[in-house]
């Protein structure tokens, strides 16, 4: 038995395809990003080594920090919206008939491509004929904003489809966690005279805190990676007011052929994401469940 299952050749054969692909197409590119960041390079011609210049430029680049700030704002909105999802899940998990069907309905937007979602919401926000402004005019608002063209509201306007897309995902996770709480705990709290709000806050919430922490990490790290939806909806505009880190990097490389500088931004995006992940995990982990 042990001899057969320790056959080096077979082990190599079975692990090789996955290991090779992940090493060549994920690990190597991540390292190369940092290396290309040291180059002056337009993507086609030869590279010139320029040391830390791109990284120094990035740190002094106001547009980059603006994009990082927008990513951070989206992360903040996403985290705050978890409270809404949690509240909905609490209601859903409190012996509601049809809960299973409802949580599946909530999940539908999550299955659609960000491109389709972005195109649909471009139509929703259309100043003249979009459903939103049609409704707003219907209830007597004379001059509803042109949502995606207004630098002051565009980021909020983009966040609504994000909320729409991910609601079902988080509700699904919270619902599953809440359903895992033993009924006996809730019953004995009721006998002790606890009201539904107390049960939710003092008993259910602490019991699913582990899952809540995971969702906080997901919401924040996910926000730092946002790209498709914003790229399609606004392209980062108007005039950079909805640019996020990934879209800024993408435009540098593939619109202006600034591959060296784009790589440096890409590497910073990687470092920021990893650092934020570790920090959030540290902050949210209790002593017993720190694991990397």
């Amino acid at each position: 038995m042990n001899k057969v299952m320790s056959n080096k050749l077979m082990i190599t054969l079975y692990i090789f395809p996955a290991l090779f692909l992940i090493a060549v197409l994920i690990i190597v590119p991540l390292i190369l990003t940092g290396y290309y960041g040291l180059m002056d390079w337009n993507g086609i011609g030869s590279m010139t080594f320029i040391g830390m210049e791109n990284y120094i430029n990035a740190i002094q680049d106001g547009a980059f920090w603006d994009s990082a700030w927008h990513s951070l704002l989206l992360a903040l909105f996403s985290t705050l919206s978890l409270v809404i999802y949690l509240a909905v899940s609490m209601i859903l998990a409190s012996k509601i008939k049809g809960a299973d069907l409802l949580r599946k309905i909530y999940l539908i937007p999550m299955l659609l491509s960000s491109v389709a979602i972005a195109q649909l919401w471009i139509k929703v926000y259309n100043p003249a004929n979009g459903i939103l402004n049609t409704i707003l005019r219907g209830i007597g608002i004379e001059n509803p904003p042109s949502w995606l063209a207004n630098p002051d509201v565009v980021l909020y306007a983009i966040f609504i489809p994000i909320l729409w897309q991910y609601a079902g995902f988080y509700i699904l996770i919270y619902y599953a966690a809440l359903k895992n709480i033993p009924e006996s705990l809730i019953e004995s709290a009721k006998i002790d005279g606890a009201n539904p709000l107390q049960i939710a806050y003092k008993i259910k919430l602490p019991l699913i805190m582990g899952v809540v922490k995971v969702t906080i990490v997901l919401a924040i790290v996910g926000s730092l990676k946002y790209f498709d939806l914003i790229y399609v909806m606004t392209g980062g505009g108007p005039s950079g007011s909805s640019e996020v880190m990934a879209s800024y990097m993408y435009d540098l490389a593939f619109s202006t052929n600034n591959f060296g500088y784009g790589s440096a931004i890409g590497f910073l995006l990687l470092i920021i994401t990893l650092v934020v992940t570790v920090i959030i995990r540290r902050l949210t982990a209790s002593k017993e469940d720190i694991q990397y």
Binding site: L25, P29, Y36, M249, A253, F267
Partner: peptide, 24 residues
């Protein structure tokens, strides 16, 4: 160790790998 290497793929922003992938 190999499993840990695989799991790196869950954490990274794919956009960071995009430019090298393109040139490769």
């Amino acid at each position: 160790f190999v499993l840990g290497l695989f799991m790196v793929g869950l954490m990274i922003p794919i956009h960071s790998a995009l430019i090298p992938l393109f040139s490769m």
